[in-house]
Amino acid sequence: MRTNKIKNYLNRFVFVVPSIILISGFTLYPLIFAFVNSFKKYKLTEPNNNIKFIGFENYIEIFKQKEFIEALIRTIGLTILLVIVELLIGIIIAVILSDSFKGHGIIRSVLLLPIAATPVIVGLTWKLMYDPRVGVINYLLNLIGIEGPVWLANSRWALLAVIIMDVWQWTPFMVIILLAGILGQPKDLYEAALVDGANRFRVVTKITIPLLKRVMGVAILIRASDVFRLFDQIWMLTRGGPGTATETLTVRIYRTGFSYFEMGEASAMSFIMLIIMMIFIIFAIKKINLLEET
């Protein structure tokens, strides 16, 4: 009887075995490996026997680096800014689409394209468009009488260039999620408001947006954790430059690990990044659950 029970459990357990093996071997083990490395002086270019434990020295060292602190602040700032901008534009467009345009077919197809576009290609495409010599953006600005800047060579404009590129690629994602949320809302509330003579703006602020809270929460969670890891597009567009003006955390870690070969420091940086993300995600998930209960 007992052996039967064990046999039955093993029969069921087999189903999760491949996943457990893969995730343990290629996520959990690398994670532990990185954690151990973050306490080592580990330079890829030097022979293995030069690797030694140095305690928290990597962590102390990276917080002394101006570039790391700046990348950290820049990444957090970019995340907040991009999420707010994309959410605001997303709400406006989604509200308009939800009641003025019945046939969403073509509009939806257009909105899916940037979302599906390969991030590296997005970076290269915008690089071509921002180009000071042949770029189409400054040409179009010229048409309406604006002298375009040398986008990618100036620190401030380069950061704005990154922002525009990300808003371009990910606002459609917000629109699609929010639109699905709005279309799923109960119609009777709207009819009641209409009978009461509420105007469009009041209906949106008093009914549509409050009812969208959970959907917005999920969208913010997804977008924020994506922007926080932003790499491919920036790496193509500016390589983090000019100087370090557009370096995000991932770019900084990539540089430290694969240009300077400081594996120890890079690992320490990625753990700081992981801790910040964990705090944010736990906070966000709690917040969303709270909204669900009320």
């Binding site: 189903f15 999760v16 996520t27 994670l31 990185a34 490395n37 790499f231 991932t250 594996m263 992981l274």
Partner: peptide, 27 residues
């Protein structure tokens, strides 16, 4: 089949939250 329970689920889902860059150096 109720294998593993919530513990296993959390283990699997949290592996999704990891930034790729943290894994790429050890990998």
């Amino acid at each position: 089949l109720k294998v593993g329970g919530t513990g296993l689920l959390i283990f699997i889902i949290s592996s999704r939250m990891l930034p790729i860059i943290i894994l790429i150096l050890p990998l």
